[in-house]
Design a binder for these strands. Structure first.
Lengths: 246, 246
DNA sequence: CCACCATTCTGGTATATACCAAATGAAAAC
DNA sequence: GTTTTCATTTGGTATATACCAGAATGGTGG
């Protein structure tokens, strides 16, 4: 079946032809992971369409998760998705950091903060409670995967910022402060990135991503840490094994 | 801070002004849930921008989850997200169907199918095993929320299609066949909709959505049902309570 | 009262063009 | 060999315009 066959019946939108073409190139392996896709202008010329239409196709391929854009550098083929098992609250760094390198953590900011209404509810502390707040970007193979904003109850972890934050904080908290993670409440949703997140993830503003929020509880059943991760949507998938509660 | 202040320093893109305006209208409640947003042409005229720019803003607001489009009827304010607790594998219909109405199930197709390689692995049956296959659309307040494609092992549920499929199938399987759900393996990812899904959800093609896959196991530890749901991304969030396994 | 039809509204696709800013790479200066 | 400079390439924003097809509306004729 070629394009003309479709044209006879319904008229296939031009941008869809480009999508099909790119999809094939990627799926067949002619374009390997992290290889550069043709530019908007190149596609426009090659297919005899306008640049805006080529752009539309490329954005669709991005949304499919087959490609990712990297600022004004170009678009590239996505690597395989990372499967993140949320049944183990232990952070990603513990999961990947050991198998091999490839995981880099960039600390964007670290400061003290006070619990607002939302945080006080989630962490079961009074409003105004002193918290550590830090923002980090996690990169897989030098490719930004997600931004994490985390809050930890300060009184439980004196001198937390004296440690290197380029590692799993749950592991750190367990090893240095004897506060092991025991359970977690997790929420996953899809939402658009704000400007800061988009900048850190090298994405155009208002791209959609997946948000994973988690409150981490200790063995005593009390929460000690709240985190919010925004993932590039094409990069992750979250798995869980659930027992039906009645 | 108004737009002019930003213009002095950096020049705020025009479409972002529209986004801010719409966001305020919605957040403040001036536009209630399911109320119609101004059309692309109306916004273009009101803000003195071209229609394509207005369109860009509206698409961004859609991606934020604040609005949803409904074919060529227009765009409307999104209702509140539905929280879906994946720790209870029991299907959504059990969750919502009792509180009040508002949930409608449309059966799109029902047929017999044979297990391919992927399905045989997930359901632990030989390739070629006979399965029920049915596709349904779930609507909340007459607004399509997700498309579900489900496969059930035929030999376990003789005459399944004699029952009304406009209800929770896990409940049906438990009540009529004494096969209660016991646990489930769940995967959540973000991906683009294909044409069929987009049509059923009243969305433009290549919109992104959230996919929830689940294999449901019985008390004997054997899988009996595999389902794949594609949600409108702005509509759902998934919660879970996880115990750390070591 | 209802069935039909034309008008008007909506978003979807597509064009050709323009300018900007970030990133890249090659040539020129040191 | 290193640094600086500059032209090129890239995506991002924006315009004005055009046509199409589905959806809603308001009227008209039965």
């Amino acid at each position: 079946m070629n394009a003309d066959d479709l044209d006879k019946t319904k008229k296939t939108p031009a941008f869809q032809m480009v999508i099909v073409h790119l999809r094939n190139q990627i799926r067949s392996g002619k374009l390997a992971a992290h290889a550069a896709l043709p530019s908007e202008r190149a596609i426009a010329e090659q297919f005899g369409i306008s640049r805006m239409t080529a752009r539309r196709a490329l954005l669709a391929v991005e949304m499919e998760g087959l490609a990712y854009s990297s600022g004004r550098r170009g678009r590239f083929v996505s690597p395989q998705r990372v499967a993140y098992d949320i049944s183990k609250t232990v952070s990603l760094s513990a999961l990947i950091g050991q198998d091999g390198p490839g995981l880099t953590i960039k600390v964007i900011s670290q400061q003290m903060a006070q619990a607002d209404a939302a945080l006080s509810a989630k962490l079961a502390v009074p409003e105004g409670e002193v918290l550590y707040k830090y923002i980090r970007v996690f990169l897989l193979q030098d490719h930004p995967a997600f931004v994490e904003e985390e809050y930890a109850i300060a009184s439980l972890f004196p001198g937390l910022f004296d440690h290197n934050l380029q590692q799993s904080t749950t592991v750190l908290m367990e090893r240095e402060y004897n506060v092991p993670p025991h359970s977690g409440d997790i929420t996953i949703r899809m939402r658009a990135l704000n400007e800061q997140e988009a900048g850190l993830l090298n994405l155009p503003t208002y791209n959609a991503g997946i948000e994973l929020e988690q409150v981490i509880y200790g063995p005593d059943g009390k929460p000690f840490c709240f985190g919010r991760q925004i993932w590039r949507g094409e990069l992750a998938e979250f798995t869980a094994h659930a027992i039906v509660r009645r």
